[in-house]
Amino acid sequence: MTPRGTLRPRLAAALLALIAPLAATAATLEAGAPLPPLALEDQHGKAVTLGAGTRLVIFAADKAASDLINEVLAAQPDGVLTRLGAVYLADISGMPALVTRMFALPTLRAMPFAVGLGRDAAQLADLPRRKGAATLLRIDAGRIAGVDHATSPERLRQALGLGSPP
């Protein structure tokens, strides 16, 4: 039996141990926040960076968003991401490794544009996301100038300034 005076410090320490990891998780980025450095590879194993020329980050947090972005970008002429000053990132951390190797990577390698792949959930955890929506982060001088979400090909083309399908 423990004395009553020692129970409270132990309980407080246990609660702190449970809460500390939650406080340490990254907050979702918003307008005005600096663009965080990222160390990702694309579907071909090449480094993907967010450099000084990056004006737009297009982010897919789930398969529906990825399918939407792929549909819109695949219909564009080669070099669309470069012309837009854009980097496309996809969170594939929840995908089983076998599915990634056998299905996702071969499909992605056939795409005419690079996709930075977040294989670890922590890599892209602070990017804003909505289920089934493509996230667009507008970048100005290394800071997030605006956040937008698109749930349809028309809305995504409009947000990217691409107009009607070719």
Rank of each mutant, 00 (worst) to 15 (best):
T49R: 13
P77M: 09
A47W: 00
L89P: 02
P96Q: 12
A90S: 11
L84C: 06
A52Q: 10
V48W: 01
A27Q: 06
L56P: 13
L68E: 07
A61N: 14
A27Y: 02
A65D: 08
Q43S: 14
A65G: 15
V57W: 02
L73G: 05
P21I: 07
G51Y: 06
P77C: 12
L73S: 01
A20F: 00
P37G: 08
E41R: 14
R101M: 07
R83H: 11
L84V: 08
L68S: 03
I58V: 13
D78I: 08
A39K: 13
R55S: 14
R55G: 15
L38K: 04
L89M: 12
N70V: 13
L81M: 07
A27M: 02
E71D: 01
D78P: 15
A65N: 11
D42F: 13
V87M: 06
T25L: 01
I58A: 11
T49N: 03
A90Q: 09
A31I: 09
D67N: 13
L89T: 07
A39L: 12
G79Q: 08
D78S: 06
A20C: 00
R55L: 14
G32I: 09
K63G: 11
R83K: 15
I69V: 14
V87I: 04
D67F: 02
T100C: 07
L98A: 08
G94P: 05
T54F: 01
A52P: 04
G45V: 01
T49P: 02
A47T: 10
A23R: 03
G85W: 12
M95V: 15
P96N: 11
I58E: 04
P37V: 14
A27F: 00
I69F: 10
A97S: 12
G45L: 06
A60Q: 03
R101I: 01
R83M: 05
A31K: 12
E41P: 07
P21N: 13
V80I: 11
A27H: 01
Q76M: 10
T100M: 07
T25I: 03
S93P: 13
D42I: 12
L81E: 13
V87S: 01
E30T: 14
D42Q: 05
I19G: 01
G94R: 02
L50Y: 01
A75P: 04
A26C: 00
L81D: 05
A97G: 08
P36D: 04
G32E: 06
L56R: 15
R83E: 15
G79T: 11
S93N: 08
G79M: 14
D62L: 07
T49L: 09
A20E: 00
M102S: 06
D78A: 15
A23I: 01
A86S: 03
D67A: 15
P21V: 01
A52C: 05
A23C: 11
P21H: 11
P37W: 15
S66R: 15
D62W: 02
P21G: 05
T100S: 05
I69Y: 01
K63P: 08
A27I: 07
G53H: 03
P96M: 08
L35P: 00
A97I: 14
V72D: 02
T25V: 04
L40S: 10
T49W: 02
L98P: 00
D91N: 15
L40C: 04
